[in-house]
Simulated assay, not measured.
Amino acid sequence: FFSIFAFATCGGFEGSVTFSVTCAGGDNATRVTNVTAAYGYPFRLNQAVFQPSLTHLCNHTWPRDVHLVGDFSSASRFFVGVAVGAFLYSLGALGLYLGYLHLYRCAGSHLPLLDPRTCCSPVSVPLSGSAPPVPGPRRGHVRRAAAAPLPHCPAPGVTCARAATPMGGLGASVAFGFLNLLLWAGGSWFVYKETPLHRPAPPPEPSPAPM
């Protein structure tokens, strides 16, 4: 369930950056326009353009369209991929435990040794892929990119005021990622306890004495 929440909150995240642009007119009149750049998964902020186009505001103060800065697509896709893989493995392992437990615990089965190695993958992959151990669209990195001032805003003729930029959903995905990592680490220990490495196989039953 935590893996579902992790990739759902990250993959379904939608945010925006809004500025209120005030243009001072020649007759002391002012014109206020709200411009917004919307972004979301996979967090290619450098492709998010402010709308309506800034090139039409404040007597063509901006010569071209303005984009946000930053591309976090590789990290966010890695995060979602690990979460989806953990979810699919959980379904497969649940089917194995419920339907084929007799094969799992039979003598000579290699499944108890294979299971810990596979179960540790959702823990070892994030740890080896990046730091901190829950890679993805770091909330701090995206927040800093979204908090950058609007470029080419010449004062005092033009004033650019920032509106709120909520990121609660992105913080939730990182929290679920950490919880998922801790749960898999704990689950790996219990899976290891089922292996002969931790619990030796019981000795064979003695054969009856010959008559």
Rank of each mutant, 00 (worst) to 15 (best):
residue 1 F to R: 13
residue 1 F to G: 15
residue 3 S to C: 11
residue 14 E to Y: 00
residue 14 E to I: 08
residue 15 G to T: 06
residue 19 F to P: 08
residue 20 S to P: 06
residue 25 G to L: 03
residue 25 G to F: 05
residue 26 G to E: 07
residue 26 G to S: 08
residue 29 A to Q: 08
residue 36 T to W: 09
residue 36 T to I: 12
residue 40 G to Y: 00
residue 45 L to V: 02
residue 46 N to H: 03
residue 48 A to V: 07
residue 53 S to W: 06
residue 57 L to Q: 00
residue 60 H to K: 10
residue 62 W to G: 03
residue 64 R to Y: 05
residue 64 R to H: 11
residue 71 D to G: 01
residue 72 F to Y: 15
residue 73 S to R: 11
residue 75 A to P: 02
residue 76 S to V: 01
residue 77 R to M: 00
residue 79 F to C: 08
residue 80 V to C: 07
residue 82 V to E: 10
residue 82 V to W: 02
residue 83 A to I: 01
residue 84 V to W: 10
residue 84 V to C: 13
residue 85 G to C: 13
residue 85 G to R: 09
residue 86 A to W: 03
residue 87 F to S: 13
residue 89 Y to Q: 13
residue 90 S to N: 11
residue 91 L to W: 13
residue 91 L to F: 14
residue 92 G to F: 12
residue 93 A to Y: 10
residue 93 A to S: 05
residue 93 A to G: 00
residue 95 G to S: 14
residue 95 G to P: 05
residue 99 G to C: 14
residue 100 Y to D: 05
residue 101 L to N: 14
residue 102 H to D: 15
residue 102 H to Y: 15
residue 107 A to G: 11
residue 107 A to D: 14
residue 109 S to L: 14
residue 110 H to C: 09
residue 112 P to G: 05
residue 119 C to G: 07
residue 120 C to H: 06
residue 120 C to R: 06
residue 122 P to K: 09
residue 129 G to M: 05
residue 130 S to E: 07
residue 132 P to H: 08
residue 135 P to S: 07
residue 135 P to H: 04
residue 136 G to A: 03
residue 140 G to H: 02
residue 141 H to N: 15
residue 143 R to C: 02
residue 143 R to V: 00
residue 146 A to P: 00
residue 149 P to F: 04
residue 152 H to A: 07
residue 154 P to F: 08
residue 156 P to W: 07
residue 160 C to N: 05
residue 160 C to Y: 02
residue 162 R to W: 00
residue 166 P to N: 08
residue 169 G to N: 07
residue 169 G to P: 02
residue 172 A to P: 01
residue 172 A to L: 12
residue 175 A to K: 02
residue 175 A to V: 01
residue 175 A to W: 15
residue 175 A to T: 03
residue 175 A to F: 13
residue 177 G to Q: 13
residue 178 F to Q: 10
residue 181 L to Y: 14
residue 181 L to A: 13
residue 182 L to A: 15
residue 183 L to S: 13
residue 185 A to M: 04
residue 186 G to K: 11
residue 187 G to A: 00
residue 188 S to D: 05
residue 188 S to I: 02
residue 193 K to Q: 14
residue 195 T to M: 05
residue 196 P to N: 12
residue 199 R to E: 02
residue 199 R to N: 03
residue 199 R to V: 00
residue 200 P to W: 01
residue 202 P to M: 04
residue 203 P to Y: 06
residue 208 P to R: 01
residue 209 A to Y: 09
residue 209 A to H: 10
residue 210 P to T: 00
